[in-house]
Design a protein around this nucleic acid. Structure first.
Lengths: 171, 171
DNA sequence: TTTAAAGATGTATTTTAAATATATCTTTAA
DNA sequence: TTAAAGATATATTTAAAATACATCTTTAAA
């Protein structure tokens, strides 16, 4: 459920050499998609209330593909976290005050699913012991704990140094 | 950080149609690698103490590629969760009693890293606000909560219905 | 003392999701 | 009526994950 950042890490290669980290994998990542979603919200949170910001501006500030951000903002708008104004002079803004935008809610919304392991999906599961296996319950509980922490925070909590953020985001 | 099961889910396709779930992604997955690790431990846990089990047998029981399991068991051995005996008549067995094999420890060991988002990696980070951004802290806390739940369980907890597991795993 | 069964190791290939790019459409203020 | 903005769709690229294949090494049994 975490923002999956595959970036330019060394390839995992399960079949690779057996020295160093071979065989291990990178779990618990959030996608850049979710990361970008949060970055957009943070950016908008540093702006004056109601003021519109263009996607281009955010793209410049973070040096992120505008095309990618278009899709992120589209989803953020559909989910109701931001308002979008089309046409010349348009842009995007937070749909609510930062203290009312919950981080857990954002991550849940930008997520597709929380199928931690194969047996979380009745459709794709092939594990023969799933009917009586305790693993799903344990992982589900862990997932809940993860999201519960995120539920404790809202966007305002991430903006405690709003001036500093503005400085760093100035292009 | 969850066991990443990509399986045969619909492709995410960030650039796909904007109806249904397009744009959303699947986070918090564990890899099949970690899932398989836990399944191997569960299988061994259903066996009599000290009795050796071959990888082939586990491969048959779960219908998992033997080659893949070879790598999983190799890692499990290196990490000290199982003992491996080479040569004819060899096999693998738990290195300790199930109650002493902690699930959180297993997941941490089979993990490569816990870089939830780009800014968790000083090497790959490009986000300009990371020096003062509260996101990393929040996600780190959530990750800790996730692992802490796993830390509360050991392999024995997953074997409460050992007889049922044996039945389902009989090939 | 040779053979076969087991795990160990390395490399190569395939598949999938994620990331990104491109192109066009729609809206709307100037 | 034009240009700037977001909306939408499709296509491409990249990287990780999953898997397959090919030996090698160890060791007990024949």
């Amino acid at each position: 459920m975490p923002i999956s950042f595959r970036m330019r890490f060394l390839s995992r290669n399960l079949g690779g050499k057996y020295n160093e980290r071979a065989g291990k994998v990178k779990l618990m990542r959030l996608t850049m998609y979710t990361d970008y979603s949060l970055r957009v919200l943070i950016y908008l949170g540093t702006k004056e209330e109601d003021k519109l910001t263009t996607i281009q501006e955010i793209s410049d500030a973070y040096n992120i593909s505008k095309n990618h951000l278009m899709k992120v903002t589209f989803e953020l708008g559909k989910a109701g976290f931001i308002e979008t104004v089309r046409g010349r002079g348009g842009g995007i803004r937070l749909a609510d005050r930062p203290e009312n935008i919950n981080i857990g809610t954002v991550v849940r919304q930008m997520e597709e699913d929380f199928q931690l392991v194969e047996c979380f999906s009745s459709e794709h599961n092939t594990c023969p012991i799933s009917p009586i296996c305790g693993l799903r319950g344990v992982l589900g509980k862990a997932l809940h704990a993860y999201l519960s922490v995120l539920d404790e925070y809202n966007l305002k909590d991430l903006l405690f140094n709003k001036e500093g953020l503005r400085d760093l985001l100035r292009t």
